[in-house]
Nucleic acid binder design. Sequence first.
DNA 1: CTTCTCACA
DNA 2: TGTGAGGA
Length: 136
Amino acid sequence: MGDEIRRNMALFPIGIVMKLTDLTARQIRYYEQHELIVPARTAGNQRLFSFNDVERLLEIKSLIEKGVNIAGIKQVMNPLNMESEEATVMSEQSEVKRRELSDAQLHRLLKQQLLEKRPGKASMIQGQLSRFYNKH
DNA sequence: CTTCTCACA
DNA sequence: TGTGAGGA
């Protein structure tokens, strides 16, 4: 299977995404209401996020921190809704252009973020990882 | 225990 | 955006 479909596979529940992005469940659900992200759902209505969803949330977070509101973010970010495999293939071109982080980088960064999430020290989302997205 | 929706002292 | 209720 291709890289795109792998990045779009619904994998983690909201709890993991909260740790990965340092966003509250409220915020994540709120951004979903505004269609900034479109996570999949399990049979039990539980949200399942893909790597792309996490990346988008990180971008949204950096934009919010820059003072951009929902309306502004909707414009800045492509009004995409890559759900079907066809849509994924069609947006492949623009997808590649948008992507600046390699799989290796992203996986390493998110893994660290997840492990570093124990109480005590500050998250690196506000440091190293955020720099990638704040440059956008 | 985790997540979901809805609503607001 | 936070938070609690009430259910799955």
